[in-house]
Design a protein around this nucleic acid. Sequence first.
DNA 1: AGTTATCCCGGTATTAGTATCACGGTCATG
DNA 2: CATGACCGTGATACTAATACCGGGATAACT
Lengths: 89, 89
Amino acid sequence: MVRVPLTPQDHERGRRLGEVLRAARGPRSMTSVATAVGMSPETLRKIETGRVPTPAFFTVVTLCTELGVPLDQLADRCAADDPAEPRSA
Amino acid sequence: MVRVPLTPQDHERGRRLGEVLRAARGPRSMTSVATAVGMSPETLRKIETGRVPTPAFFTVVTLCTELGVPLDQLADRCAADDPAEPRSA
DNA sequence: AGTTATCCCGGTATTAGTATCACGGTCATG
DNA sequence: CATGACCGTGATACTAATACCGGGATAACT
């Protein structure tokens, strides 16, 4: 066991992450946002659809900066419905 | 070119990320923090020393939650000295 | 109907993140 | 000195993230 595979909870969390980001994108097109932050539309789509549950930190940071989403709020909304790790409480 | 290698700027940013996290850890030992957040001490060490410039998003989130570092502040401090992308200005 | 633009999905290739193992160094304690 | 705890580094193994390529579906517009 060298690298633990992502758990279903991780995927669930990734789905919520994608939902928040998609909602924040609003009417803007994937392509324009992806181009603005310097990443491929494929990657953005995978993140939004939750197929990439744990993107790189700065990928999310750049995305949030572009979309005007506070990182703390994003993290909070992703972990909010996750009863597995209520350590913040 | 299927996956662009990390640029020197990425490594620089990762080093700053590690510095901030290490400073936030304070007198606590790596092992205790790593155990608290459920990751191996080796990984935490690599993040703090900047040898892992772009960790997974939730890895940083969990770490910040444990260390009490606001994500927005962390991202800001990492990108502060980076003249390559002053898009937030 | 043709074109364009957006979204979705599959596969493939390459790099990066994470975990384990192993060795070495330092410091405190016995 | 021996032992243990902590930090640092290197190698290795395996999975995940990212980018590119192909195809397809829907809608708007000419």
